[in-house]
């Protein structure tokens, strides 16, 4: 399991590095947030790597100026310092001008578990969803992150890409299963219900599905890795005939993909399946420990999720 050691961040930037080697117009900007996978940019592509310093707002404006000269820019920092601190800069400088700047937020959900609420990336998707022109990706594993790196380098507009630092077991064995055009993949079929999950929660969803099968419930899992725009028509096709659908995310429930999908289903389906939205409740999480402990505090661990779903489908 070599992929365990390397996380989706490494996979993303390794792929980006190989693309940047062949394209000098690709630049990586960081706001003094390091990553070992950035070292080769620093060493081998010094003209394509800029540490802007601890000045995230300037980094966003700077990336817009560089993009206006024909460059394709990747900017990198911890989610709250980018998606939240720089919201208006992202809105005006990147989205209003529709520039090829890819915003890479590190630390999805409770990834920075011990660093406290200042470092938790738990409201970013809600904020980014509101911005016109912006595409949003949230890869579920290393292969998926690689594919998104490749796809984003070919796309012209702005994008927000939400990454984990830490490594988890893979969801995909080969990239052929990752349908970039569709924006989601059915990673496991199910007859009774389905969990639509994003990011690292896809792995949790697969475990939950295993737990549910012990209780004779056949639960499918969909990896929704493109969060904006969502291919609603195809997603509705994928869950057709199921009576229960769960949306699972490591993000606050307000404004998350659960709300988004609920609105899509309600407005576009004649008859909606019953929906359960699982995410972080309306509070800051001041617990510490491993990511799993924080998830447990928010009922987002495999045991809690399985129990919630079992009780729900019995009703």
């Amino acid at each position: 399991m070599g992929s365990l050691a390397k996380g989706m961040r490494d996979a993303f930037f390794d792929t980006l590095f190989s693309i940047a080697l062949k394209n000098k117009d690709i630049l990586l900007l960081t706001a003094d947030i390091g990553a070992i996978c950035h070292d080769k940019f620093r060493k081998s592509l010094p003209k394509q790597y800029v540490n802007v310093g601890i000045a995230e707002q300037n980094m966003v404006g700077l990336s817009a100026g560089l993009a206006l000269t024909g460059k394709k820019i990747y900017i990198y920092s911890i989610i709250p310092f980018l998606a939240m601190r720089c919201y208006e800069q992202i809105r005006v400088d990147i989205c209003c001008m529709d520039l090829p700047v890819k915003i890479i937020g590190i630390g999805a959900g409770f990834d920075y578990s011990t660093l406290g609420p200042t470092h938790h990336g738990t409201e970013d998707i809600a904020l980014m969803r509101f911005l016109p022109n912006l595409t949003i990706y949230s890869p579920s594993d290393n292969l998926c992150a690689s594919e998104i790196a490749r796809k984003s380098s070919r796309e012209d507009g702005p994008a927000y890409i939400r990454l984990d630092r830490t490594g988890y077991p893979p969801i995909y064995r080969d990239s052929g299963k990752i349908n970039m055009r569709l924006g989601f993949s059915v990673v496991k079929g199910g007859k009774d219900l389905c969990i639509i999950a994003s990011g690292n929660m896809v792995y949790t969803a697969l475990k939950v599905s295993g737990r549910l099968s012990e209780h004779s419930a056949s639960c499918g899992v969909i990896d929704l890795f493109k969060l904006k725009p969502i291919n609603a028509e195809k997603l509705i096709c994928a869950i057709k005939g199921l009576s229960h659908v769960v949306v699972l995310e490591e993000h606050c429930l307000s404004g998350g993909i659960g709300e988004n999908i609920a609105a899509l289903f309600l407005s576009q389906m004649g008859q909606c399946p019953r929906l359960k939205l699982l995410g972080i409740p309306d509070r800051f999480c001041a617990e510490y420990g491993k990511r799993e402990s924080l998830r447990r505090a928010c009922n987002l661990d495999v045991g809690s999720i399985s129990n919630i779903i079992l009780e729900w489908i019995k009703k």
Partner: peptide
């Protein structure tokens, strides 16, 4: 940007020097 001669969209104060720095850095790199 849809106006000929306008290089940068503006209106929200404080942004222009960062964007200008990006333009200047882009010129330097090229």
């Amino acid at each position: 940007l849809n106006t000929p001669g306008i290089d940068v969209l503006s209106g929200s104060l404080g942004h222009g020097l960062s964007v200008g720095s990006g333009l200047a850095l882009g010129a330097r790199l090229d």
